[in-house]
Design a binder for these strands. Structure first.
Lengths: 143, 143
DNA sequence: TATAATTATTTTCTATACGAAATGTTTTCA
DNA sequence: TGAAAACATTTCGTATAGAAAATAATTATA
């Protein structure tokens, strides 16, 4: 019985933490005028350079259709560029637009620091505990 | 530097766990033909009985507008009933529809067991570790 | 008591998410 | 080679999610 309550506690805790993180992240990116998933896309493209839609989708772990929608909005604001491949015309490549250079630095720092900052109050021991807990969580879920 | 990597690790871990949970929950509720947020609403109404929209919103920790949309869909399928209060006509009460009785038992079990089952593979020690990690996480975030 | 302030809920707008169907291309192989 | 299979991406339909504006009703107060 004790463990049952613990499990319900986990569900609630997880959901709460999730919400706090999202709220905080959103606030950070609001400054740059970009949403969290959009930041993931741009961050990934910045780090790894041009790639296929499907590759992007795999890296961020979002479905192709979701990525497609995010790209639509980013493309409309000319922050990314889609290019149909010449060799295999089924493929579409995406990359960060050159005129993104302006915002680039500010954005890059946000990406790097937002989550970073969120946990800055934690001691190494606490960080360790969190990592251990999440790893345990993941291990159990994967069985 | 070590802690910086740990923090990035946390971000990724958390996101992964989040996704696994959602996927698994969704699969459970697909059988009953209901989504996760919808199950939260129905579960809460079943447990506590009729209540105000705002109360429901507070309990589930979702914005009023989100709750409103979820209720729209549930009401359309006649799973819940909205009633405008007579005393204070600003207030709307919601309750689970009587004809929900059929699905009720099956559903109730799903609600209770879905997350439960998800963690059934965990030993008490592991469950403890997860709780500790999440609590630490939450504490840090709240500073 | 008329008006302002407050409270409660709904509507509207924008952005995710995802599965399934649709579309367009390329490759296989009978 | 020509149809079928495989592949890559987009479109469509449904459901969240939340902020802000709109609506409606109640309460406070000048």
């Amino acid at each position: 019985m004790e463990t049952v309550n613990k499990k319900v506690e986990i569900a609630k805790l997880f959901s709460e933490v999730n919400k706090i993180i999202k709220r905080s992240m959103r606030k950070s990116f609001d400054d740059v005028g970009i949403t969290i998933p959009q930041s993931l896309v741009i961050g990934t493209l910045t780090q790894f350079g041009e790639m296929k839609i499907s590759e992007l989708s795999r890296k961020i772990n979002l479905s192709n259709s979701t990525i497609s929608g995010i790209l639509d909005r980013l493309e409309k604001r000319q922050l990314v560029i889609r290019t149909r491949s010449e060799e295999d015309r089924r493929i579409v490549y995406v990359k960060v637009s050159p005129n993104f250079g302006e915002i680039h630095k500010e954005f890059h720092e946000k990406v790097e620091q937002s989550f970073e900052h969120l946990l800055s109050a934690g001691t190494p021991e606490e960080i360790g505990k969190i990592v251990e807990g999440l790893n345990t969580f993941k291990k159990i879920l994967n069985d």
